[in-house]
Design a protein around this nucleic acid. Structure first.
Lengths: 231, 231
DNA sequence: TTTGTTTTAGGACATATGTCCTTCCCCGGC
DNA sequence: GCCGGGGAAGGACATATGTCCTAAAACAAA
């Protein structure tokens, strides 16, 4: 983690994301911008929470680790999104671990200043409400989804949503996949994921190549997934 | 659903739950109190949401139904809690179905009045934030829990938390259980639940009787469940 | 190139869980 | 008391998924 002392950059991010509509003038001097390298932990389960973060650049992975050491990926996030909102409202320790998947920029605001300047500021509260209800909604969906459908369906759904919005993949339908991550996200074992991938291959739905997966039959996947898509 | 035109009753509930701290004077005339009979649906998945409800008496069951018709119980709620908060903030149709498990009283407030009178009222927004983050937290937990642990562990956990705080059970550790509901809550089939119950019986952890289950060895269950407890 | 190390895919088997169906028991209506 | 309905428990089997291990492939270092 590096603190970037670059007022220009902060102002730029604030403008792009219309953060001035959410916060107010008084708190602006207390915004800090942090940079994280790929793979770096942004915050760890169980530690005290001090900052609310606004993700303005890059991609992060949110996951939880059970006492037995199994990890379950809860979501990936891209700008603009907020990290540490739950902890701020509930005043609790950090609930899930957050790791930078790419190089990441986050605007950090210490709880102290939030409490002092925007805790009664309706736009800020409304913003948090929107963000959190949305998170809730997504989580609620994916929970039912995970519980109600077999891995086959979940993987189909995952492939669809990833190959769609992955803006940096060169060809549509071709997505680089980290199978271990995918397994943890879907909530299954690496072994079983492989099994299902293989099955999809023989069904001609996808093609496995070195380092990436090519979606060959989007409609076939969609039929499998039903209308249930990972958000 | 019956509307109770009883100002006295409303005022009483408002006092008990300190609702005047959350709302303001102007909206008070627009609070309505509804009564639902046991088994009645309070709201149904997919319908337009009009009211925010505050549960002030009784117990409700929140569940979702998949397109295939499988149901998954998300939670049970008792006073004081809020129904329809997500829908209000997101302005969407009703997400989950809510059913009265006992006779229920709810204070209903139409979105129209909320928007008009308390949408910028910090105490109300903060209240919603607290409620929703808490829901999120619980859901997040139970999701990981469901995904990470086998039915055995989930059932142990369920039995512990239900036999504990069930204030109306005559003897501690003796809880009346609706097995169908329990299965849907835990996210498994009725058949499999039976299997695990039977297993617990032979292990001497519990005793199955007509209409209820007796927890015989709380520590044994706790050891099985680990420290993970349904909220 | 050689060798050791790490990663990935897949085989073999065990376990968890789901589906379907039968049996049994209770209970109300006659 | 007899009969039929309905729910609860459990048997039999199929399927989904997990664990452990090995073979093959990729990779890094010498």
């Amino acid at each position: 983690m590096k603190e970037l002392r670059n007022r220009e950059l902060i102002n730029n991010y604030i403008r792009i994301n219309q953060i001035e509509l959410i916060l107010n003038e008084e708190i602006m001097p207390y915004l800090t911008i942090y940079s994280f390298d790929q793979g770096e932990l942004i915050c760890s389960q169980g530690e005290p929470a001090e900052n609310l973060y606004i993700l303005v650049k890059g991609k992060v992975k949110i996951f939880t680790t059970s006492t037995e050491g199994k990890t379950l990926i809860l979501s990936f996030k891209t700008p603009m999104d907020v990290i540490g909102d739950i902890e701020y409202v509930q005043n609790t320790d950090i609930v899930n671990t957050v790791e930078a998947v790419s190089s990441v920029h986050m605007i950090g605001i210490h709880h102290r200043w939030l409490k002092k300047y925007v805790n009664d500021h309706p736009p800020f509260l409304q913003f948090l409400l929107k963000i959190i209800t949305n998170k809730f909604f997504i989580k609620s969906n994916s929970m039912s989804f995970n519980l109600l459908y077999p891995v086959e369906v979940r993987l189909a759904s995952y492939l669809l949503s990833s190959s769609f919005d992955e803006s940096d993949s060169l060809y549509k339908g071709q997505l680089s996949i980290n199978s271990k991550d995918a397994a943890n996200l879907i909530g299954t074992s690496y072994r079983h994921l492989n099994r299902v991938i293989q099955q999809f291959c023989t069904q001609g739905l996808i093609e496995r190549n070195k380092g990436y997966i090519l979606v060959k039959n989007r409609d076939g996947l969609r039929a499998l997934a039903g209308q249930n898509i990972y958000e």
